[in-house]
Design a protein around this nucleic acid. Sequence first.
DNA 1: AATGAATGAGTGTTCATTCAT
DNA 2: AATGAATGAACACTCATTCAT
Lengths: 188, 188, 188, 188
Amino acid sequence: MTLKKVKTKKKTAKEKIMFVALELFAKRGYHRTSTINISKKANISSGLLFYHFGSKERLLKSIVEMLLSKLDDIFDLENYSDPNKMLEIIIDRFFESLQKNSSYWDLYMALLYQPDTKKHILEQVISHSKKFRHKIYKLMLKMGNQDPGANSFEFEILRVGIFASYLSNHNDEVLEKARKTMKYKYLL
Amino acid sequence: MTLKKVKTKKKTAKEKIMFVALELFAKRGYHRTSTINISKKANISSGLLFYHFGSKERLLKSIVEMLLSKLDDIFDLENYSDPNKMLEIIIDRFFESLQKNSSYWDLYMALLYQPDTKKHILEQVISHSKKFRHKIYKLMLKMGNQDPGANSFEFEILRVGIFASYLSNHNDEVLEKARKTMKYKYLL
Amino acid sequence: MTLKKVKTKKKTAKEKIMFVALELFAKRGYHRTSTINISKKANISSGLLFYHFGSKERLLKSIVEMLLSKLDDIFDLENYSDPNKMLEIIIDRFFESLQKNSSYWDLYMALLYQPDTKKHILEQVISHSKKFRHKIYKLMLKMGNQDPGANSFEFEILRVGIFASYLSNHNDEVLEKARKTMKYKYLL
Amino acid sequence: MTLKKVKTKKKTAKEKIMFVALELFAKRGYHRTSTINISKKANISSGLLFYHFGSKERLLKSIVEMLLSKLDDIFDLENYSDPNKMLEIIIDRFFESLQKNSSYWDLYMALLYQPDTKKHILEQVISHSKKFRHKIYKLMLKMGNQDPGANSFEFEILRVGIFASYLSNHNDEVLEKARKTMKYKYLL
DNA sequence: AATGAATGAGTGTTCATTCAT
DNA sequence: AATGAATGAACACTCATTCAT
């Protein structure tokens, strides 16, 4: 086995563990997923997980970091000159992400409302929300919105409400209705 | 020991278990709370919990039933003739409940977004939400609202958004701001 | 409630417990049958079993005594003058009992070959077997059998072999074949 | 520590558990033997038993398989040209096995007559019995026996009767007498 | 980097038994 | 005689973690 090969394997194994764990945590919950479940599904030995992550909790932390950075990317988009167009893109991305990255968001919610895992995610969720609201605020300002403060606040609450509703029952019809409502309310 | 005392004690044991369990489940999470934790805190033997509830999961189910019926009571109010007044009362009760019954709602959210406990609560949450929206719809109709369908939908999403926001970070300032927003938007 | 009534009730409850327990011990095994199982099926409170029998093991002992005395009755028959006829009756009773009192015999075997329950039954089984062989010996003597010692020994081993075979698989065909063999071998 | 040693040790742990469990199951009974009893006597941790066997019941299954295959070996002997000599060897082996592998046979009987463990052993016991009887049938045929069908049937019942008698009281004198009876009846 | 046997504390649960009524 | 809530030791089993290789 060459050095190259080994290095490749290392990376692969670590990533495989993270993706398998993310999937299982989202599907069955963190506490109902044992490290042996993960290592079996990832086709690695039970020891390797601890070699790479040290503990189950630190594996979770790694996953949370990955998850949040991935979700960050979704809303980090190049600036369009047209704020109205841009707001539409943001709304669309936000709704698409809910459906496409469903298991990411499921885990996100599970972690956020579970007392013992909240600590891993809350702080970043709050700052995420603030950043997001600020972005909407600036867009609304550009769009000539009369009260961008109040409206971006309302926008953010609606966003969270849509998240919370959809992620509890995964009702696609209601989601589509909510998307139309958002566009109708906030786009020119 | 009088007969009265004994009777009271008997009643208490089962209830004590439920209240202690509710508290611990809300504070530490269902999986981090062992039945031994519960029985120690409730000052009863480890066996009694199973004598009364059969299993940890059925204890949870009993708690969920109690919790949902208590929350039901909050929004079951006698009819006022003035729909505007009534909507205000509903909004106020809803905000007050969030703060007063904080640990109920924490547990509610934890159960709703945890894959393995969701089944105990989801169905009732959906029907609650429908009933609640319908109540708002009728009030808006009475109040002469132009589009009670769309507005009660939006109202319900905002309600959920406020829940989800507040129960993640327990920020009372934001909650107060949201209350004002709700009243400003929906009351005449 | 009159004194009479109470006395009647007492007897009934105790007997009910014994019969239900016998049935359950035979069907599920002694260790897989809990005292609560018994009391539920007998429609009495869990405490009453202990009031009457003191412990699960003493309940078993009572059952064993009843069982052995009942089985004793089967082979205690009035003397016929014709020894050949009598031997035929014995053989028939023995085969009939196997099929009719199946659950008695199942329990009998379970107790006999289980290390921790053997003590309750072994001694009586041995004396039972000796008495039975002696009865056969005397009949064979009367019937002019050349070597009643050897033949009654063989008879008893065959009897036990038939028991053991039938009670392991409850195969009625083989049992019938064995009955014919016994009659053919030992009746004139 | 050499590689050899380690390999040996690894092999031993699983086997040690099986042999200790076999011994304890035979001596105290399956239900009176806890997995903790086994792991303590085998000098291993309580978890290792479950690592290797998954459950107490599957440990029992493994033991039953081993036990039955060992007992199979006893009666699998090379063909002698002299069927009379061969039948004698079979009879001798069978009696010797009863005394030498006493605890195997004790467990065998305990499992066979206990409702909840019967399922692990009954099927194989029946097929063993059929195979064994067929072997005797063929030998009797070779020996010029007039009615090998009836006689091999009787032989098998006697064999079972001797088993059942001996394994209930472990009376060596009676066993010796039975051996003589068998040889006298069936050898030329 | 990778394995997998081994550990041991902890978990939910069962159950014979007690006892106040 | 009868109830049934209450006990607590025991049980089978799980699982994060360690470590020799």
